[in-house]
Amino acid sequence: MDKIKENAFVKKVGFNSLVLFCILILLYILFAVLVPIVNSDANANFVSWAHILSAMNYACFMGFLSLGVTFVIATGGIDFSIGPVMFCAALIAGYQLTMKEWPLALCLVLCILVGTAFGTLNGLLVTYLGLPSFITSMASMMIAKGLGSVCTKTQPVSWPQLSDASGNGWYRNLVRTQIGDMTFPTGLVILVIGAVICAIILNKTKAGRYILCIGSNREAVRLSGVNTKGWETLAYILCGTLAGIAAIFYVGVYTTVQPGLGDTFNNEAIAGCVMGGTSMTGGVASIGGTLIGVLIMALLQEGIMTMGLQINYQYIITGLIVLVVVYADLRSRRRRN
């Protein structure tokens, strides 16, 4: 085991990431074997491009959510509002698009801005008022749910299809582009680019440095003369903004958004993040790990659905995953101390 850890390639990519990648492959094989057994339907062949695309649909928007919440967890906080905020953004922007006939580009921007607004709210409440992050984000989750519904007058909102008469459907190309016969997974590419940008922010910029150090030892950073409140708020703003971006990728695939929902995505985003090696106690975060964690969640979700089981099994498994992973993290920390 130690010899593997010492290997130069392993060190560069990260031991955890490799383990996760192996888990991903194993999971795929597991589903490929199980699905035909469990699901007697003739069409239930897991190994197909269609299933991968379907899983990628999920991974797209969930990826952005997880990336966002990684920043917050890195500071030692948590954000439970991301799912409903994503929906709220999609609802408000979608309403303006479909009912008020605003130009699409403007609506896309609005979508992101709603996310940013909630992120700012959460950040200010937690850092300047000193409220505990979990209950604060739960409260803002309620506000997001309510606000989304109020703005659309409790109606669900359906974003335009690709071939929509208004010509507003072009945003769908952000998710998937049809080039001749091939479907190009644009969304995935954008997600990876987004992840790279996030990784650069986290590992190579001042913001990322401060965010990680604040999560590790906030007081030491403050005593070094840094404005910790500002940088910590930034983490929440990033999270909210990414939730706004996630909204675009959600409606690009699933079209319709219902008001009042979205909280199940919170846990799944956190699960992906935590699986990837980001520690709930703060200070340690891995964008690459989060990405693979999201892929695992996407695969899990797709596999369970294809097996004919309900989504509820996913809820249970997600809950168990987080419990186990966080426990392992706690244990290893205690051993170190």
Binding site: K206, R209, C213, S216, N217, A220, L223, V226, G283
Partner: peptide, 20 residues
């Protein structure tokens, strides 16, 4: 408690007050 950020490197700790 107040001086070092334990799970960061020597380099990162050294520039904590001067990152700009």
């Amino acid at each position: 408690r107040f001086g070092i950020i334990v799970d960061k490197s020597v380099a990162e700790n050294s520039t904590m007050a001067t990152l700009d």
